[in-house]
Amino acid sequence: MAYQNPSREEIKAILQSSDTIAVVGLSDNPERVSYAVSQAMQAKGYRIIPVNPNADTILGEKSYASLRDIPFPLDIVNVFRRSEHCAPVAEEAAAIGAKTLWLQLGIENEQAADIASAGGLNVIMNRCIKVEDSILLPQGK
């Protein structure tokens, strides 16, 4: 059976209960979608944790080489990587005890969804976190 995203109400509850979002593939280039989306989420009050081994800081936050290097709990792992690179990210997200694996718009990987689900994570695929947050929580959390 094909993967199905949580309902809109479930996604709203996930966003409402989340504060810290690690963004895998967050670019330090303001022209990139990952930067714009993360900047908007940061402006809404979420703490954005960059996961980019090629940057020291992004959006004023220390950047980490991998999820395993982050020394505190994460609510959401938001992924801006091509679909074929998502399974290892799901394994890391499960290993560190993240609560949700979120694959951005245009990114789907059934294996990653299975890995994350088996690890107890919520899984959202092919949805933009900024768009969902804007629709479901227009006034903020």
Results as ranks from 00 to 15, higher is better:
84 E>T: 08
108 E>Y: 05
104 Q>H: 15
113 A>R: 07
12 K>G: 08
123 V>E: 11
41 M>I: 15
59 L>G: 03
102 W>Q: 03
37 V>M: 14
49 I>V: 15
70 I>S: 10
111 Q>E: 14
127 R>H: 10
46 Y>Q: 00
56 D>E: 14
15 L>A: 11
12 K>L: 13
88 P>E: 06
59 L>S: 06
105 L>G: 01
140 G>I: 10
134 S>A: 14
100 T>D: 12
138 P>F: 04
134 S>C: 06
133 D>M: 02
127 R>V: 14
93 A>E: 14
107 I>Y: 06
33 V>Q: 07
136 L>M: 13
68 R>N: 10
131 V>S: 08
2 A>L: 13
106 G>E: 04
31 E>I: 09
48 I>E: 01
47 R>F: 01
140 G>N: 02
128 C>I: 12
88 P>V: 08
76 I>H: 05
109 N>Y: 05
122 N>C: 10
139 Q>S: 09
77 V>G: 07
129 I>M: 15
44 K>E: 09
24 V>P: 10
19 D>C: 09
58 I>K: 05
95 A>Y: 05
67 L>T: 04
83 S>I: 08
83 S>E: 01
10 E>H: 02
35 Y>F: 15
3 Y>M: 13
33 V>M: 08
25 G>P: 11
71 P>K: 13
45 G>L: 06
47 R>S: 10
63 S>Y: 02
17 S>T: 12
